[in-house]
């Protein structure tokens, strides 16, 4: 379904951070999101059992505790640790490049997509769009596998379901 829309916005720091987090979520393979928690839980169970059954000396106890800590790190890698670092680096990137981030006007219609700001203008037919991905709080328009345009969710009152 194709819908017409025109939005104009200046990305804020929270928009940029949210975009980076959702892009990372999009890029992460689904297998990793399943395998990492499973590996983490196995690690924690092994560490706990080892500590109960074979924790005879202080050195051994420290080894088992390290194993449990490693399990916790693996378990929370994609949900806590990676988002934490991505949000931090995205916020510092935004603050450093704030003067280079301009307001954008994006116009989508049945034939074309037009994006314009002070220095950059793209107007491409719909067939030139590689993919449109609608995340929770951001709409991504991919022009190729890497280059994309994003629209923060707050500027779209009702996120339209846009399919290529």
């Amino acid at each position: 379904m194709i819908e017409n829309m025109q939005v104009s916005f200046l990305p804020t720091e929270s928009d940029y951070v949210m975009m980076c987090l959702e892009r990372q979520k999009y890029l992460t393979p689904k297998e990793n999101r399943v395998l990492f928690p499973v590996a983490g839980i196995i690690d924690i169970v092994c560490g706990t059992l080892g500590m109960i059954l074979r924790g005879e000396s202080v050195f051994e106890m420290i080894c088992w505790l390290l194993l449990i800590a490693a399990g916790l790190l693996i378990l929370s890698y994609y949900d806590v640790i990676k988002p934490f670092f991505i949000a931090g680096s995205a916020a510092s990137y935004y603050r450093y490049h704030q003067k280079d981030i301009n307001s954008k006007t994006i116009c989508i219609n049945a034939e074309s997509i037009t994006v314009s700001d002070e220095l950059h203008r793209i107007s491409v037919p719909r067939e030139y769009v590689y993919k449109i991905y609608q995340a929770k709080k951001t709409l991504f328009i991919f022009l190729d596998q890497e280059e994309f345009i994003y629209i923060p969710g707050r500027v779209i009152e009702e996120m339209p379901s846009l399919n290529k």
């Binding site: 793209i122 491409v124 067939e127 030139y128 590689y130 022009l143 190729d144 596998q145 890497e146 280059e147």
Partner: peptide, 13 residues
């Protein structure tokens, strides 16, 4: 190889 894939996926490049 990723560069090649990006080029193939893009009409603008």
């Amino acid at each position: 190889q990723r560069g090649e894939r990006i080029y193939k996926s893009s009409h603008l490049l």
